[in-house]
Amino acid sequence: MRAEAKLGFILLLSPLVVWLSLLILIPHIDMLLVSLRERVGVGEYRISLANYLTFINEPLYLRTFIRTAMMSILATTITLLIAFPVSYYIAKIARGRVQSALFLLCLVPFWVSELVRTFGWMILLRETGIISNLLQALGLVDGPVELLYNDAAIMVGLVYTSMLFMVVPLVTTLESLPDEVIEAGYDLGGNGISVLREIIIPHATPGIVSGCIVVFMLSLGNYLTPIMLGGKDSLWFTELIYSQFIVRFNWELGAAFGFLLLGLSSFIVWGMLKLTGQSLEKTMG
């Protein structure tokens, strides 16, 4: 019996180990090694920090990196601000059928490819698009207006794309808050704002954290939205990675960029977990 259990254990453990080592651990170590080498001749390499120095010394790279991080943080904040009232409505105010219908409606857009969603925004925002025509019909503007190809368009796209990943964790945590607790808050003399600040938000913290982590990560790693909705000047860091790998074939620099992106996203995720005293198992699992 013990031998059988041991065999079962090994059989169950091996797919996990093969998956995590061959597809996650070793490729990332390899990527780190590639990012730490410098080409000195045909097929000759030496270990150096040259790629990381290039990143620091080239203003375009550093600026794009910081810009991507800042815009992702902004997108996360906006998504949270928009999603919180909606999640609260679904979790606490809507009842029965309306509640489940609204929740399902939130999910529907996200079963559709990100490409389709971005395409929809292009049709809406472009010069010959719906919004431009609507503004002209209302007499608010004289000629066609180009709303596409700028940072605001990227922001709209990012917020739209990540909405689901904020609403679902928020609804789940808010639903677990009993109505009586909120009533007690009012009975003890609280008003709307103090109840929100002292009861609702502290209770929703785990949901807020996991929503923010996922949204931030998705925004940081997004490629499609910035490239389709953004203009010539609105570079995103993932575009740099893509062009180093596929266009310029400079894998060393591309790997360094990849590592920097991974480092930034891990740092922010870790920081958010530490700041709020949560753990990865609880927020993701």
Binding site: G221, T238, W251, G258, S265, V269, E281
Partner: peptide, 20 residues
């Protein structure tokens, strides 16, 4: 460790597997 793939940007997963 098993949860980590969820917090690695998709493009980084792609290039690491490409490199390896």
């Amino acid at each position: 460790f098993m949860l980590l793939p969820l917090v690695i940007p998709g493009i980084v997963l792609g290039i690491s597997i490409l490199v390896f």
